[in-house]
């Protein structure tokens, strides 16, 4: 049901055109943060307003939309954003990565490789990779325009000097097409390799900070490192306890208060697809549907008040 009191996908056409212009500019200069006149959205800043505006500007009535948060289709904020577009745009939605034409995501890249024609829209809290080294916008913009990225490496140097390895686990900085250093949004560094040479278009929207940036298809994205301390996209040394996957990013779930825990795919669609195809992990049974599996853990780890 489309809510008739608002324009298709909520934003008025003029605003969408303004955002599309910013997106085109972002695609033309990969990794460069394009300022745009972010609008107040009917959801709070910091909750995906940048991603929502980019999605709204890209959506066509024939699109199929998937929304994930932390890899899952059913987290509260993903549900809320999906509902928003169902209500204001009436587009078809899906949980299957392969069926979606636009995927809005917070903090993950789907496990299943994306294909040409798909658009991945990231929600970005702080678009500036240099922000915590230099708080001033006027200064960081200069640093980008002059490619003054020495400070970024000082941070990595300090990590190695102190910890023996680079101590950045998510929002790991990357260099796009040999020019701009970019924040890939708070995805785990495990996802970084998927940024590079993807056939899909990757768009990044930061609403509160009024920035849009992009990684066009087949763009080289390199995670910053040292020659003798190369980037390491490692993850927890476990298999998924439900589907047995060894190559997917895992969430750790505490199952009791005596240290019991299980590891499950953070990408719920990936996990479900594998189980439906007959794969099973340490605790999973292949024939279960995701809903039954999920419900079966309600007893172990009951819903908390967080859900509201």
């Amino acid at each position: 049901m489309t809510d008739q009191s608002y324009n298709f996908a909520y934003l008025d056409e003029q605003t969408k055109r303004m955002i599309r212009r910013a997106i085109l500019k972002a695609v033309a200069v990969p990794g460069y943060q394009v300022p745009f006149a972010s609008r107040e959205m009917p959801m709070p800043y910091g909750w995906g307003t940048g991603g929502v505006q980019v999605t709204a500007a890209c959506l066509m009535p024939e699109d199929v939309l998937k929304v994930i948060d932390q890899g899952a289709d059913d987290t509260t904020n993903a549900v809320s954003i999906r509902k928003f577009f169902q209500r204001t745009a009436g587009v078809a939605t899906t949980e299957a990565t392969s069926e979606a034409t636009i995927i809005q995501t917070r903090h993950r890249i789907p496990e299943q490789a994306l294909t040409a024609g798909q658009i991945l829209v990231y929600q970005v809290p702080i678009p500036e990779p240099l922000r915590f080294l230099e708080p001033r916008e006027t200064e960081t913009r200069k640093m980008h325009s002059l490619e003054e990225y020495g400070l970024m490496h000082v941070k990595l140097y300090e990590d190695i000097a102190r910890h023996g390895s680079i101590a950045t686990a998510y929002a790991y900085p990357v260099k796009v097409e040999g020019r701009y250093v970019m924040d890939p949004s708070p995805i785990p560094k495990f996802d970084n390799p998927k940024l590079s040479d993807s056939p899909a278009l990757q768009l990044f929207g930061a609403g509160r900070e009024q920035r849009i940036y992009a990684v066009p298809p087949f763009t080289r994205v390199v995670s910053l490192d040292f020659d003798d301390h190369p980037f390491d996209p490692s993850k927890a040394p476990h298999d998924c306890d439900l589907c047995g996957a060894s190559e997917s990013y895992l969430d750790e779930v505490i199952t009791d208060d005596s240290g019991g825990r299980m590891f499950v795919c953070s990408d719920t669609d990936f996990c479900r697809t594998r189980r439906e195809a007959g794969h099973a992990g340490r605790l999973g049974e292949a024939q279960f549907s995701s809903k039954k599996i999920a419900n079966s853990f309600e007893g172990i780890c009951p819903p908390t008040g967080d859900e509201a």
């Binding site: 709070p44 800043y45 910091g46 909750w47 307003t49 948060d69 932390q70 890899g71 987290t75 509260t76 904020n77 917070r106 903090h107 993950r108 809290p125 910890h163 023996g164 390895s165 101590a167 686990a169 998510y170 929002a171 708070p186 995805i187 785990p188 560094k189 495990f190 509160r208 490692s234 993850k235 927890a236 990013y249 895992l250 969430d251 750790e252 953070s266 967080d306």
Partner: peptide
Amino acid sequence: QATGFLEHIKLPHYVDFQSELELIRKL
């Protein structure tokens, strides 16, 4: 802007937290 960003830390951050957790364990 301020209240939105302040309150967004209530949203799930399992993935970021998980990656930090793994890093701290490794270190």
